[in-house]
Write a protein that binds this DNA or RNA. Structure first.
Lengths: 134, 134
DNA sequence: ATACATGCAAAGAATTTGCAGCTTG
DNA sequence: CAAGCTGCAAATTCTTTGCATGTAT
């Protein structure tokens, strides 16, 4: 199975890099659709998954919401806003050696781990404050 | 809004405790449906979410798969099998003070975090080994 | 040429929701 | 009896997939 270079795939890759705020597949589609009305959502999904499989972008599987895609491939953590669902980068050193701290691995093959922070982003704090004032 | 005690809610709670392996909503429904054929899936979902909101059970939001529910409410981590999608408890001490390690909180209100390990469970290792032998 | 990719629309999986009728407090 | 809850089915949301056609190598 040989991967081909297509215009659509390059467009999807460029869009993820351009929309540096962890866009969803739909946000990528909307951006591309404005300049390339013929692109289909299926193609956007397929290329996002292919690019992630190739390691060119990173798929962030956000609980309770659509997947998001990240142009930065170095390991870093994310915080997920419980209100609006957006994902943001967390400025923190990588926590290493966590797998070694596991006591009983029960025959499991530990491959990786991810730390997902949850919180409320500044924008949603403002919205909440405004609503409380009423 | 006053919460009422209903037969269905108690059944859902009991089922999550009985199925101690982090069942999905569907697994809870299947168990209950066998003894209570009239219970509806909507009710199972509603009660799982209510119980989680009340802190009586815990909702595990598994990337790329249905949510799972945990009867244990003390903080502990999980490992998610990439092959079968099941979730298992990880025997590890709680990592404390992680939120304090974040350098620039950018006005974010950090509430919580979860560490999700990924790996392959013993069952799936066996299946894979058996398939390779062919 | 021939595999792989696309666009489209339909299917799929997981979850939520509208509503009439039933229950709990 | 009034606020909440249930069962049912339809709707929603996000994502994948089947297929005929198009395109890169």
């Amino acid at each position: 199975m040989i991967r081909r270079t297509t215009i659509q795939k390059e467009l999807v890759f460029d869009a993820v890099r351009q929309l540096h705020n962890h866009p969803t597949a739909d946000e990528v589609y909307e951006l591309l659709h404005s300049t390339h009305p013929n692109i289909s959502k299926g193609t956007v999904y397929r290329n996002l998954n292919r690019l992630a499989a190739e390691g060119k972008i990173r798929k962030l599987e956000i609980p309770d919401g659509p997947d998001r895609f990240d142009h930065i491939c170095t390991n870093h953590y994310h915080i997920h806003c419980c209100k609006c669902g957006r994902a943001f980068d967390v400025d923190m050193e990588e926590v290493s050696g966590l797998i070694d701290k596991v006591k009983d691995k029960q025959g499991f093959d530990f491959l990786d781990y991810d730390i997902i922070f949850k919180g409320i982003c500044p924008d949603c704090q403002k919205i909440h404050a405004a609503e409380s004032e009423q």
